[in-house]
Simulated scan of single mutants.
Amino acid sequence: MFPSCISLLPRRNEPRPPRPGQAPVVLNVYDMYWTNWYTAGAGVGVFHSGVQVHGSEWAYGGHPYAFTGVFEITPRDERELGEQFRFRQSVHIGYTDFSEEEVRRLVSELGKQFRGDRYHLMNNNCNHFTSAFCLALCDRDIPAWVNRLAYVSSCVPFLQRCLPKEWLTPTALQHSLAAHSRSSTPSPTTPSPTTPQ
């Protein structure tokens, strides 16, 4: 018997086994709207995504302030995102050589680009962030279907107006903003920067 020609062809997109010290990079994808149950099969859906690496999941959302919109949650915990999110699936992207500390530094750098006040549902959303993050971590992009709606919307301009605004700021990011606000407010015992010494 001769081997099949197909078996001689190199296989694409098979994840290579990790080298010692490498950490897996996983994309966690969430449904954001009930219509996904009807439209996702056709390749169009409204999805949120986060990148899981070193036991944390990192995602991006919008707010009105000129600082990072990147936030951290427990991997695959849709409750930390809010009631409109439903975990759909995890996609293995690859492996990274970055240590946990290096990942946190990278997140901080990406936060300068992915500020809360720069969030845009179609042009600079959570899936754009996860794409940039995965490329930086392991030089592999997220699957195209995750952010297909953003590309389709360029042909259907009214689509953005149809999406609820509360998706901009997931619950975990709201908590992060509240903590940031508390840490930025001077306490009564601490002199403010404008108080003469």
Rank of each mutant, 00 (worst) to 15 (best):
P17S: 11
P18Q: 06
R19V: 06
R19A: 12
R19K: 12
R19S: 12
G21F: 13
G21Y: 14
Q22F: 07
A23P: 05
A23K: 07
P24F: 03
P24A: 03
V25Y: 12
V25W: 12
L27C: 09
L27Y: 10
V29Y: 14
V29E: 13
V29A: 11
Y30Q: 03
Y30E: 03
Y30N: 02
Y30P: 06
M32Y: 02
M32T: 15
M32W: 01
Y33D: 15
Y33H: 15
Y33R: 02
Y33K: 02
W34H: 09
T35P: 01
T35N: 02
N36P: 07
W37E: 08
W37H: 10
W37Y: 12
Y38R: 06
Y38D: 04
Y38S: 06
T39P: 02
T39C: 05
A40G: 04
A40D: 14
A40Y: 05
G41P: 00
G41M: 00
A42R: 09
A42Y: 13
A42Q: 06
A42K: 06
G43M: 09
V44D: 06
V44T: 13
V44F: 13
V44S: 10
G45C: 14
V46F: 09
V46D: 00
F47M: 03
F47N: 01
F47G: 00
H48E: 04
H48R: 02
S49Y: 00
S49H: 01
S49Q: 02
S49R: 00
